Computed example of a mutant assay.
Amino acid sequence: MRWNLRMKAAERGIWKSAEMRRRLAEAGLDISAGKMSGLWTGTPTTIRLDDLDVICEVLQCEPTDLLIREPEKVAQRRPAQPEEQNATAPAVVPRLGRNRTAPPA
């Protein structure tokens, strides 16, 4: 996911994090300067849904405007699988240890 807060804020004429913080406070979300800096300059690892709701209200946008999917990055993370595995899966053979019985038929 890509965090798009600064672009959405710029579209609304908000160019500085202090201005965004002030507008969030007016909307009922009192946010620390450190947390605002993290939201403004990078991609947050977590965000409360209530906070996201207020941010969307202030910017008059939807969460999908702030959180942009990047399916190509997901595809890059997927491990490459050899074609042999895709063709046929190996048969599962139960391993019987000491004092174990065979599963019911």
Rank of each mutant, 00 (worst) to 15 (best):
G38C: 10
A25W: 07
L66R: 03
D65R: 11
M7R: 13
P63I: 00
Q81L: 09
R98E: 02
K16S: 08
L49V: 06
W15Q: 11
L52C: 03
P82N: 12
V58L: 02
D53V: 02
P44S: 11
N99S: 09
I55Q: 01
I31M: 12
P82M: 09
P103R: 04
P71Y: 09
A87H: 12
K35L: 03
R98D: 05
P94Y: 07
K8F: 01
G34V: 04
A91S: 10
R98W: 07
R22Y: 03
G42P: 06
A33S: 15
K16W: 05
L5Q: 08
L67H: 10
E70P: 01
P79L: 06
E70T: 10
E72R: 13
T101G: 12
A80F: 05
R2S: 09
V93G: 08
T43L: 07
E19H: 11
L59F: 03
N99M: 06
P44G: 09
L96E: 05
Q76G: 11
N99L: 06
D50Q: 13
L96Q: 11
E70K: 14
A25E: 07
T43F: 06
A18P: 02
R78K: 15
D50Y: 06
E11S: 10
R21D: 00
A9Y: 02
S17N: 09
L59M: 05
E84N: 14
R77W: 07
P82D: 12
A75G: 09
A80P: 02
L49G: 10
E72G: 13
G28P: 01
I55D: 00
I47A: 10
N4K: 13
K16C: 05
A75S: 13
Q76A: 15
R2Y: 09
Q60T: 03
A87W: 07
I68D: 11
E26R: 13
A9S: 12
Q60W: 05
